[in-house]
Simulated assay, not measured.
Amino acid sequence: MGMDDDRGDRRAELAGSHARVTARIEAACAAAGRPAADVRLVAVTKTYPAADVLHLAALGVTDVGENRDQDAAPKAAEVRAAGADLRWHFVGQLQRNKVKSVVRYADVVQSVDSVRLARALADAAGRLRERPLDVLVQVSIDGDPARGGALTGPGADPEVALDRIAAAVAEAPALRLGGVMAVAPVGWQPEAAFERLAEVAAGLRAAYPAATAVSAGMSADLEAAVRYGATHVRIGSALLGKRPGLR
């Protein structure tokens, strides 16, 4: 089998998985009484090559997610050089020493979970970008500080308190507060996790009406996320197949 055949097989594989995921999102929206246009698919392409991103772009995917800067930066450059204009979401834990790199290609950082990180992003975005960087605050559903995510409620450390992080983002001219992101904790029913996130998101919108984004739900639990108001679902394996091991 030649290289062109290999590419054709991969294109066909991705077309089939994209159709199945799109159908799931549409069915979940219908069950929740929401328009399908309310939910945006973010294709999480970590560990997969730029060629797959370009195949997905040809299928109509407009948003891609990455979680490791060392992989994402060259991939974004390669995709851009090939002429695809996509919206790049950084969805992984972000170290402050990677901020200057990430703000050059990311349109959205979904994983802001400390005041220090928000301020580092604001500083770098102000110097290195022409347009504001969209930011989602990553929320800890179960309150476990070891897992990361902003904390809610009285007594939260101010450095990682949701209201303090949101204020730091909202006050920064180079940032735009888009909403919240979360992952359902292991051991939690997705419905319980996303119901809790919906409550947090509603509280944030009350203070910041433009912060309407709710990034929740992955391949295994997107239906529950859509039921509880997700506006973005982050889909990896259901689109791209079983993930190769992280390098």
Rank of each mutant, 00 (worst) to 15 (best):
L14S: 08
G143C: 12
R205S: 05
E130K: 15
A161I: 03
D6Y: 09
V112D: 10
V183C: 05
V137R: 05
R10Q: 14
D142Q: 10
P173W: 12
A174I: 08
A150E: 07
Q95P: 00
S101V: 04
A213N: 00
D85Q: 13
D6M: 11
V44N: 02
V135M: 11
V169Q: 08
A216L: 14
G148H: 05
R104T: 15
D123Q: 15
D71S: 04
A76Q: 02
F90R: 01
E199S: 10
S101K: 12
I235V: 15
V169Y: 04
P132N: 14
A27Q: 13
E130T: 15
A206N: 02
G229H: 09
F90N: 01
V135D: 10
P185H: 12
L175H: 08
L41F: 04
V115S: 11
D134Q: 14
D134G: 08
Y228N: 14
H55N: 10
T212D: 11
A19D: 14
A202G: 09
P158W: 10
L54Q: 13
E191P: 00
D52Q: 07
K242I: 00
N97A: 02
G2M: 06
D157L: 08
G187Y: 09
A224K: 06
T47E: 05
A31Q: 12
A201R: 13
R196Q: 15
R147V: 02
A72S: 07
G236I: 04
V64E: 12
P49C: 03
L197N: 10
V53N: 08
L14V: 06
A106S: 06
A206R: 14
D63M: 09
V135K: 08
I25E: 13
S140Q: 11
G65Y: 08
D123S: 14
S17E: 11
L94K: 07
K98I: 03
N67L: 03
R104E: 15
Q93W: 00
P209I: 04
A28C: 06
G155Y: 09
A230K: 03
A30S: 05
V169E: 12
K75A: 01
P244M: 06
W88F: 06
R247Q: 05
R131I: 03
A124C: 07
L117E: 13
V99L: 10
A184N: 04
L59G: 05
W88I: 00
P145R: 11
V137T: 05
G178N: 02
G229E: 13
T47D: 03
N97P: 00
L162Y: 01
V79A: 06
A211E: 02
V91R: 00
R116E: 15
V64Y: 07
G217F: 09
V102P: 03
